[in-house]
Amino acid sequence: MASNNEDPFQFREFDEAGILLEANKDAVTISIEDEDLMSKRQRNAGLTPDVDEEESLNTDDKSSLLSGQRKNVPFWTFEYYQQYFDIETYHVKERIIGSMLPWPRKNFIQVYLRKNPDLYGPFWICTTLVFAIAISGNISNFLLHFGKPNYKYTPEFRKVTIAATAIFSYAWLVPLALWGFLLWRSNKILNLVSYSFMEIVCVYGYSLSIYIPAVVLWILPYEWVTWCSIVMALCLSGSVLVMTFWPAVRDDHPKVIAAVLSSIVLLNILLAVGCKAYFFSSPQRDSPAPVTVKPTSST
């Protein structure tokens, strides 16, 4: 105690001071700042009991939990985008699997994103899907015509551009519209659940991941396989989307609920069926094609 009193710089080392204070409780050295510090530390400890493991990650979680949102960095800085890439491999795996397997009462945003939406997944899933559609469309076209006379194989590189336009505009414009709509509705009706723009983008991006294996299946020249995989993918991704946005519109007027959910599902169907129709030529449509071309060229 004597040593504690004679060194005025002792109070800078809070840990040691705390240990000393706990060691001999009858010491009269407790000042107001110390009490403040101790209570603060106890509060922190009560909130996050597992401080030791993964220090940085936990502090990040803690800060985001306490503030309820991310730190405000202007959008033109590098750090702003860095916070949307603050994920690890198992997060991405978990989110992709979560977007493929809808589970009742499991909201994708609340279970997997937890106020930490990323842009890595949506961006690379969209890019992969673009090339998967273009390449497998090309392969299926090749398989369909293989061995036929006067068929000349072409790489159809133009399809990449068209697929990129379609996929990226779906993955960005639909969330934008949905976000605007939900914002407008939340002004009229008090909703408990509100999603940020990035969360909606993230859900939409991850919901496209089921289409990557589906699109690869479309290579097979059997129509029933194609349609089965389309229906499967539609059910899975559509139900994930519907279950995610259900809490956000739950308290609204029934007509609005129906409109929102049906437009989400309809746009999803439109994307899948549109891609199938445009990038993959079906054998039924293929045989009358030369017949229909002839009259247009003669007139």
Partner: peptide
């Protein structure tokens, strides 16, 4: 100089 350079459905151009 790939397949059907003038065609829309050809391979990638130099710039691409």
């Amino acid at each position: 100089g790939g397949a059907a350079d003038s065609d829309d459905q050809g391979g990638p151009q130099f710039a691409e």
